[in-house]
């Protein structure tokens, strides 16, 4: 059984990333479950998906302390999931800062020590600089697939399965771009 949390900010494509992973896991014969928070996310709130796959999956929600992977699309968002870490959890974080409303309107500050804190306290953290990969892919929108590419390095699935899943879920004109993004992401770790 593997439990993966994807999280980020509304608009970053968190749900699509989890869908691709689900497709790949299902194709490899696993039972799959996922849980997502919709609702007000579209208005710039936090978004989160839990994906779990294995022989038989009961809960779609991951238990605190039991995530195998946490993939955070934004720095501050990675800090919201620390309860789900254990000593073996791999935490992949996109080095990007998106100011939330309280920072935008000047009532709070964006913490400046997140990277430092993560490096110090989380055993298996990788803070990824995705800028070049996004330039290489030719679109910032492919961040979700870049992060998925990085995650794929830790999972057993064939490259062709990932490509097939992307082809099935992304609009035709963006497939090539996304496969490129995936491979660039894979090369980041």
């Amino acid at each position: 059984m593997k439990s993966v949390i994807f999280n980020g900010v509304g608009g970053q494509g968190v749900i699509l990333a989890s869908k691709v992973l689900m497709e790949v896991a299902m194709k490899n014969g696993y039972d799959v479950k996922e849980s997502e928070v919709h609702g007000m996310a579209q208005r710039g709130g936090s978004v989160e998906c839990n994906v779990r796959f294995g022989e038989k999956v009961y809960s779609p929600l991951i238990q605190k302390g039991k995530a195998d992977f946490i993939v955070s699309f934004e720095l501050l968002e990675s800090m919201r999931k620390t309860d789900y870490l254990n000593d073996d959890t791999v935490l992949l974080v996109n080095r990007e800062q998106i100011n939330p409303a309280p920072v935008e309107i000047g009532v709070m500050e964006y913490p400046s020590d997140i990277e430092e804190w993560l490096e110090k306290n989380v055993k298996n953290v990788k803070i990824l600089d995705t800028k070049d990969a996004l330039i290489g892919a030719g679109t910032k929108k492919a961040l979700n697939i870049v992060m998925l590419g990085s995650l794929s390095k830790y999972l057993e699935f064939e490259l062709s399965d990932w490509e097939d899943a992307i082809k099935g879920l992304v609009k035709e004109q963006f497939v090539e771009q996304n496969i490129k993004a995936f491979n660039l992401g894979r090369a980041l770790v």
């Binding site: 900010v9 509304g10 208005r43 710039g44 800090m79 620390t82 000593d87 409303a101 309280p102 055993k123």
Partner: peptide, 21 residues
């Protein structure tokens, strides 16, 4: 009980409430 793998972050983490676009 959940066992915490990392210490509590000491600073203030701003929330990310939804807002009007």
């Amino acid at each position: 009980k959940t066992v915490k793998a990392v210490p509590e972050y000491a600073g203030d983490l701003p929330g990310r409430p939804p807002g009007l676009c």
